[in-house]
Amino acid sequence: MAKDLYMKIVTECIETKEQIKFLSVVECDIIQGIYYPKPMTVDQFETKYMALVD
């Protein structure tokens, strides 16, 4: 129904890869939850992920 009304669908409390797979099948637009890392500062992000780019 939300898609028919051109609304974005947000699902919260996602904890597993299986939930993410299911939500992609049903065309969920935004996924939030503890499956993904907590928000971090730019410095924390660069320290954690920039080494993967090199």
Rank of each mutant, 00 (worst) to 15 (best):
M40N: 02
A51K: 12
I20W: 04
I9M: 08
E46T: 00
K17N: 08
Y49Q: 05
I34M: 10
Y36M: 12
V10N: 12
V25T: 10
S24W: 10
L23D: 04
V10R: 07
K38G: 06
D4W: 07
I31V: 13
T41K: 08
F22R: 07
M50G: 01
L52F: 06
K17E: 15
F45K: 05
T41A: 08
Y35E: 06
Q44L: 03
G33N: 12
I34H: 12
C13I: 12
L5H: 10
D4T: 13
F45C: 01
Q32W: 10
D29K: 03
M50W: 04
I34G: 04
F22I: 12
K48W: 00
K21C: 02
V10G: 04
K8M: 13
I34N: 11
D29I: 06
V26P: 00
Q19M: 14
L5T: 06
D29Y: 08
G33C: 10
F45W: 05
T41V: 09
Y36A: 11
F45R: 01
K8A: 11
A51T: 00
E46Q: 03
F45Y: 12
V10I: 15
M1D: 14
K3F: 09
K21D: 12
E46H: 00
Q32G: 04
F45P: 03
E46F: 00
P39M: 07
K3T: 14
Y6C: 14
Y49V: 01
I31E: 11
E15V: 05
A2D: 13
S24C: 05
T41P: 02
E12S: 05
E27L: 08
D54A: 06
P37F: 01
V53M: 11
L5N: 05
K17C: 02
P39T: 09
F45M: 05
I9P: 01
Y6H: 15
T11M: 15
D43P: 00
D54V: 09
V26N: 08
A2M: 14
I34F: 15
E27Q: 12
D4C: 07
Q44H: 02
V10M: 09
A2E: 12
I9Q: 00
T11E: 10
C13H: 12
